[in-house]
Design a protein around this nucleic acid. Structure first.
Lengths: 218, 218
DNA sequence: CGCCGTATCGTGACAATGTCACGATACCTC
DNA sequence: GAGGTATCGTGACATTGTCACGATACGGCG
């Protein structure tokens, strides 16, 4: 029998963690197949065999990022105040972006030209989205927010993502105080706005998962 | 005297427009110095002489993007309804992102590893920011919003940027109706939340829990 | 104990790209 | 028409993603 196989799932896991570390350490520019393979004590063809190329490796790092973000959310504990819990989720999102700026950039931007996170990859982050939807649902159930849970979650995620992107780019303010103030203003404002009954009186199904509306102009 | 100089500011302008077109047409992957130079009927060293390298060219495209966005904002006309005007600005922002997805990605994300828009580049987009701040100021002056203009503008830009990023990635919803609905919900909610007086320590705004209950019919 | 077959691995080659030195080129002056 | 010179583009180099293919190591067999 031939030599013992080294490119196993264990090496795959190791390379993945090495890749995350390399990305976090050296940034996007340092994330080359040669460097990652060298850090993992192997050669570049291993990247090809285990991940199908650089894009596949980036894709796995992308998934790993959502896994870690989900872990952060999972560490949060629900209290008797659903509104505070929802704000804590958004706070955890912000902290994740500050602790892992490059990883967050990979997850919510597209710094690698040959990896396009699209609708297919959205499913990977569904656990994260589910977390936010759940936190929203507890608010709507308590009457603190009104509207469709998934729509509200989308709005909150978009707001948090935009704030995190601005903060990462250094565009949200020079001083920590101003950044904190703007985060707080944004979150409190959007929650206050969502606390009002939706303007449309048509009907508000409590758990409408799918938007019922076929094509329709605004 | 030697041959006539070709790498003039005119060629620079031409190359810039060619670069914008190439980026919009072929995406980030097609944006190479050779391709842009070839489209502009010149050679790669011209990129180096006129822009200082690829990063400089990307930087100029970045500025051009903000210039065009500013033109869109400038085309909007103020009406008697400051709130509607502010929403129109955000709508123009959304439409710009939909019309120029790759350019918007360059402006608000960082798809090129060797160009890092930072605080220094923020000044370039200050005209755009000034537009939003101005629209906000007219709302605060009219008593429609309360708070610091620049803070409110930051929140609105972050929200619009996050929504645009999600929409560009195909994460905001599968149907146009759902995307429109979430945009509208986000904007109306944030504006409603910002319409309340800034956070009193122990009070939430009156719209937080109570239905609007306007004091009188307009 | 030594050889061999085979699956496995890493070296090295190839194409594409950013960068830029340097020789080829074209224009003006005399 | 010849010469000088600023200008331009060809071509070379380093880096990177990709992957074919020969080198290698391991277990089995004589």
């Amino acid at each position: 029998m031939p030599r013992i196989k080294q490119r196993t799932s264990e090496l795959r896991e190791h390379m993945l963690s090495v890749a995350v570390a390399t990305l976090a350490d050296g940034g996007v520019a340092a994330f080359t197949t040669r460097r990652v393979a060298g850090q993992a004590q192997t050669s570049t063809p291993a990247v090809y065999e285990l991940f199908g190329g650089k894009a596949g490796l980036v894709r796995e790092v992308f998934f790993e990022g959502f896994r870690r973000l989900g872990e952060r959310f999972g560490a949060l504990e629900a209290t008797a105040d659903p509104r505070a819990d929802l704000m804590a989720v958004l706070g955890a999102f912000r902290e994740f972006g500050r602790d892992n700026p490059v990883l967050a950039e990979l997850m919510f931007s597209r710094p690698f030209a040959d990896f396009d996170p699209g609708p297919a990859e959205l499913a990977a982050g569904s656990t994260v989205r589910e977390f936010i939807v759940a936190a929203v649902r507890r608010c709507t159930a308590a009457g603190l927010l009104h509207g469709t849970d998934s729509d509200i979650a989308h709005v909150l995620v978009a707001l948090a993502q935009g704030l995190a992107a601005q903060e990462a780019a250094g565009w949200l303010g020079a001083s920590p105080a101003s950044r904190d103030r703007r985060w707080a203003l944004a979150v409190t404002a959007v929650l206050a706005g969502l606390a009002a009954d939706p303007a449309q009186p048509a009907r508000r199904g409590p758990a409408a998962e799918m938007p019922p509306a076929p094509p329709g102009p605004p």
